[in-house]
Design a protein around this nucleic acid. Structure first.
Length: 443
RNA sequence: GCGAUCGUAGCUCAGUUGGUUAGAGCGCCGGCUUGUGGUGCCGGAGGUCGUGGGUUCGAGACCCAUCGGUCGCCCCA
């Protein structure tokens, strides 16, 4: 029987990486509540039109990266390549207009048919935050400040910079785009093959080409600032002054454009040079035109998405808190004692692991590897002078264990309730790194 | 879709200019040792050397194809 392989570009995440992944999500959940964003869940697949119409037919995402298939009714469905389009559809379908302006947060898997590489997968995961039905720059500011706080709380903000730009309103953007096409047409033959292609499909993209043949023309290319009308300028000014007031650092990136057609005004990316070719860790912008393309009324909105895998890589290995208590069963006849104690300890809210298989030697090896705060040993050695003990309950705590609550619980409550002892029996000594306390129950 | 690079035990890797029964460390299992015990010693399980062809008296090592991983281009989080 041959084991089927996992699909290319999917990942099985485990251990420290999985902990880092969970840590990113948990931090996002916590921060999103601080900003009072409401949680939403959407399907992972939609009718293909949801994405093809909103993202722009000519974008690479739509033209070659979507996971599309026909269902049994011959309807074309697509695994979501991004969140925004699906959220916009849900907003219209469910009448969420009544909640506008609506602050939404979600996270989960997305799918794109691409060659995998560092920080890029066919099934990848994003955090997502959107404000729908808010035309004011204030919404952009709130979203950016939240993103900034998220990165800071994750401890990854060092070396990550906020690149900020404006694409102006629809009219500004079109005028700029036309000027760029004009300009680059003049140099057409000198451009890279990729950029000659971009000239027809997505001229804004030429601006962040990595090809040296293109870079020489960038300095003299038309600037968006020259095409912004007064309104667009004022909008951008309010965004930047809001960020300054909130203490969020940013860098103007006049050639920053976003890949999808629906962006207007604010566009931004938090980038780092620590992730190889995939420098963008969080990106987004304003998409005032999107909801109309799905048949809704004109609805201004802003949002961003962040790659969980990329954030997790910046976070690095993340280890869960150490096990608080490990119970080592040394005498198999007393197995019920471990069941009793473990249940009690866990119900009390302390993490606990039981080691009760393998040779006694292996059990201690295992417990040492778990590196617990406290080790509890269940033993039936009859080694007292009068020989009337039938169970012994010892625990050893790391000398540095700064958990008086846990120590108190174990010494006083458990020991008294279960063993009906009077307390320490005087057997108390230091062994290496551990303080060892020993209790014995008498009958 | 394009390019580079890699693919030997569960994991990390050695395997000399192609030459007898393919190795180590870690991990796992067992035994002994260690009188509070992540030590030491002994033993064990586990590999069709990604797969399929080819060259050769002989290939894990050379060639071709294919699959997969990694990194990059395109694009994007």
């Amino acid at each position: 029987m041959e084991t089927p392989q996992a699909i290319r570009g999917t990942q099985d995440i485990f251990g420290a990486e999985a902990e880092a992944f969970a840590h990113v999500v948990e931090t996002f959940e916590r921060v999103r509540k601080l900003y009072r964003f409401r949680r939403a869940e959407m399907p992972v697949f939609e009718k293909t039109a949801v994405f093809s119409r909103s993202l722009g037919e000519t974008t690479d995402v739509v033209s070659k990266e979507m996971y599309s298939f026909l269902d049994r009714g011959d309807e074309s469905l697509t695994l979501r390549p991004e969140f925004t389009a699906g959220i916009a559809r849900a907003y219209l379908t469910n009448g969420w207009q009544q909640h506008a302006p609506l602050k939404l947060a979600t996270h989960g898997p997305l799918f794109r048919y691409e060659r995998p590489q560092k920080g890029r997968y066919r099934q990848f995961h994003q955090l997502d935050a959107e404000i729908i039905g808010a035309a004011e720059p204030q919404a952009d500011v709130e979203l950016l400040v939240m993103a900034d706080q998220l990165l800071k709380e994750l401890g990854v903000s060092d070396g990550v910079t906020l690149m900020l730009n404006t694409l102006g309103d629809g009219a500004s953007r079109e005028a700029w785009r036309a000027a760029l096409v004009d300009y680059f047409r003049g140099q057409r033959e000198a451009l890279s093959e990729d950029s000659q292609e971009r000239l027809e499909r997505n001229p804004l993209r030429i601006l962040d080409s990595k090809d040296a043949r293109d870079k020489v023309f960038l300095a003299d290319a038309p600037k968006i600032d020259d095409y912004l009308n007064g309104e667009a300028q004022e909008f951008f000014g309010r965004v930047t002054s809001g960020l300054d007031a909130a203490g969020v650092e940013w860098t103007r990136a006049p050639s920053l454009v976003r890949g999808l057609d629906y962006y207007r005004h604010t566009a931004f990316e938090f980038v780092t040079d620590r992730l190889g070719a995939q420098g963008t860790v969080l990106g987004g912008g304003r998409y005032d035109g999107l909801i109309e393309t799905l048949g809704g009324a004109h609805t201004p909105a802003v949002g961003w998405a962040a790659g969980i895998e990329r954030l997790a890589m910046l976070v690095g290995e993340w280890h869960p808190l150490p096990t608080e208590v490990v119970i080592v069963l040394e005498a198999d006849s007393l197995v019920v004692v471990t069941n009793y104690l473990a249940a009690k300890i866990r119900r009390r809210g302390y993490s606990c692991e039981v080691v009760s298989s393998g040779s006694v030697n292996k059990r201690f090896e295992k417990s040492k590897k778990l590196n617990p705060l406290v080790t509890v040993i269940i033993d039936d050695k009859v080694d007292s002078i009068d020989g009337d003990f039938n169970a012994r309950f010892k625990y050893s705590a790391n000398v540095d264990c700064d958990r008086p609550d846990l120590m108190k619980y174990l010494t006083e409550e458990l020991e008294r309730k279960y063993f009906q002892n009077d307390g320490y029996d005087g057997d108390y000594f230091a062994s290496g790194q551990d303080m060892v306390f020993s209790f014995e129950s008498s009958r």
